[in-house]
């Protein structure tokens, strides 16, 4: 039977702007994915616990506050502690190229989508990189 791609879209930290996250949630829905949207002001612990309970394949983190170098590595560390290394994690928001490089190289974020990224590029990236045969 067909396996649906399940995606958690979360906003870590304190910024209150979730229009981008909602645009992404809607686009992924229209691409046939099941999107769990958790709302604003999530701690890394809340995000990882929700991802665990919902058994998602992908986590999309939207962050505009500038705190990405603190919060995103924390999410990745908690995922490792839970043994959830097979979950694809992508990030979006205001993240400099230098930071994006570090997040990808040192922390295991799969891709960073900055302003101007097309929703189709995000959908395509998820489809080609998600692991649906998780153990």
């Amino acid at each position: 039977m067909e396996r649906k791609i399940r995606v958690l879209v979360a906003k870590p930290g304190l910024d209150g702007h979730d229009r981008g996250a909602k645009v992404i949630a809607r686009a992924l829905r229209d691409a046939g994915m099941e999107v769990i949207y958790t709302g604003l002001q999530q701690t890394p612990q809340m995000i990882v616990e929700a991802a665990l309970q919902e058994d998602v394949d992908v986590i999309g983190l939207s962050i505009l506050s500038g705190a990405h170098m603190t919060l995103l590595p924390k999410v990745m560390q908690l995922l490792r502690e839970q043994g959830m290394t097979d979950v694809l994690v992508v990030a979006g928001g205001i993240i400099s190229d230098e930071d994006a490089e570090i997040l990808k190289r040192e922390h295991g974020i799969a891709e960073v989508f900055g302003p101007g990224s097309s929703t189709q590029a995000i959908i395509d990236f998820i489809r080609s990189n998600v692991q649906l045969t998780r153990g």
Binding site: R26, R29, M33, E34, I36, G39
Partner: peptide, 15 residues
């Protein structure tokens, strides 16, 4: 009913 996708938003209220 068109794409088969969904936005599941119940958790927002359950924080």
């Amino acid at each position: 009913p068109f794409s088969g996708g969904a936005v599941l938003g119940d958790r927002i209220r359950m924080q």
